[in-house]
Amino acid sequence: MLAIDQLSKTYADGNQALERLNLTVGNGEIVALVGGSGCGKTTLLRLIAGLDTASGGAIRLDDQTIAGPSADVGVIFQEPRLFPWLSVADNVGFGLSHLSAFEREGLVANALARVGLAEHGPRWPRELSGGQQQRAAIARALVTRPRLLIMDEPFSALDPTTRQSLHRHLLSLWDESRPTMLLVTHDVEEAVSLADRIIVMQPNPGRLYEEFANGIARPRDRMGVAFERLTREILKSLDQSLRPAAHAVAAAAEGQAAWW
């Protein structure tokens, strides 16, 4: 279980990105974070990935405190971030250097096959399309079998068709080992399509605003009534979260004066 307790982050320039944020994500759960720009979604993911240091609070994964990058946490970034000087196979096996070549090759071949890139292992990343590169990045993150997979708008640069194709790939891969997944996205439909729980965040400073459970059975029909209703509710909440009044209510609820 991922447990985030009173997490705060203030940058050196005084910008308070997160303020006393609490969040719990159960094992195998998929949680999506949505919110306007500057609400601290990416900051939160970077803190969980161990790429930044929190100003206060704690992050625990199964009772182990996360204070830096961990073997149990896999990351998929907004861009594929493949190393251009490594073949696709070597990129996927980048985190397996502690294994023998034989073991590594087997795992990489399997991971590539699972994302539909079995024939592309010897190629350079530049020889793949954007969607294929992101699939290789997903394979690289999952091949080490992390307990927690965090994703920072991983599909935002892709066209809608490729994006939906990758959603299906991701859910199939998740279904195999059921890692806990935390997804940041601007796309509410993507959140409803993938997540078990959708959390709306509000900006200045970043906090949780509202939470939605998603009980729609998979595979989810984007045209279905329940899907559309939940999407509308989240969009409405998102809209409200960006209004100044929402900040005042949230601040008052915590017994604080609003900054304005």
């Binding site: 699972r114 954007g130 294929q132 699939r135 990758l166 299906r168 279904d175």
Partner: peptide, 15 residues
């Protein structure tokens, strides 16, 4: 589980 590559993801420019 084996997943078939989705043609929608785009043909490889390496073809």
């Amino acid at each position: 589980m084996s997943i078939i590559a989705d043609p929608a993801a785009g043909a490889s420019p390496a073809s």
